[in-house]
Structures are given as C-alpha cells and as structure tokens.
C-alpha cells in the first residue's frame, strides 16, 4: 500500500509519466531566478565592454529584442507558443532542456 514499491499507475507497467499542465509556484520562482541570472550575465558583459567603448552585434541585438525578466508578462515567462496546442500556448516545462534555453519572445501576432 505504501512505500517505494506501492502499486501506482506509473509503476504497474508501461510508460506512464504524468507531467502537470502548468508549473507549480516553486517552479515558477526558480524560472524567474534563471531568467534574472541570464539578465545579469548579459548586463555584466555589456557594462564590461562599454567601459572600453566596445560592443558586439549579438549583444546589441539581444538588448533591443529580448525583454528582461521584469519587462516580461507572466504569460511569456511560464508558457510558450506551440502551433499544435489548443489556444496556441503550452507550459514552458514541456520544452526540451527548458531550464537551459532562452525562450522569451513570441512569433509575430501571438
């Protein structure tokens, strides 16, 4: 009944993993921390290069196109566009390697 070998649907055979359709509040908190960490890295590089009067095209592009964590809507922080899903949004935790990729903007019109 209890313990590590209890009879549950995932254990009693077959491949059955259940991924909740939305993030928990703690997952959302950690997602915000990750977004902020990336923002900090970009800001550090930007300030270090700016002191020498330098910059790079990639950095400028990131600064113009990508919103920071504070500018993002909750919708964009925790969900992503997917054309195969009803209403075109799915939880960001369904994206492969979602804790290590930057996915911040939507396709035009969404």
């Amino acid at each position: 009944m209890f313990g590590p070998f209890r009879l549950t649907n995932p254990l009693s055979g077959g491949l059955l993993w259940k991924i909740p359709w939305r993030l928990s509040s703690h997952q959302k908190y950690r997602q915000r921390q990750r977004l902020r960490r990336v923002d900090n890295v970009v800001a550090t590089i930007d300030s270090a290069l700016a002191k020498q009067g330098l910059s790079t095209r990639k950095l400028e592009r990131w600064k113009t196109e990508m919103p920071t964590e504070q500018e993002m809507l909750p919708k964009d922080k925790y969900t992503v566009f997917d054309r195969k899903v009803k209403k075109y949004r799915k939880g960001i935790h369904k994206v492969p390697k979602w804790t290590r990729v930057s996915q911040r903007v939507n396709p035009p019109g969404f």
């Binding site: 890295v41 590089i45 270090a48 290069l49 020498q52 990639k58 950095l59 290590r100 990729v101 930057s102």
Partner: peptide, 14 residues
C-alpha cells in the same frame, strides 16, 4: 574583456 570572449559567453550564457 574582448568582443570575441563576450560572444563566446553569450553562446553559453544560461
């Protein structure tokens, strides 16, 4: 601190 290294860091910024 050079633009080359900055580009490398941006590739793995996460």
């Amino acid at each position: 601190v050079t633009p080359d290294v900055a580009g490398q860091i941006l590739r793995v910024k996460e």
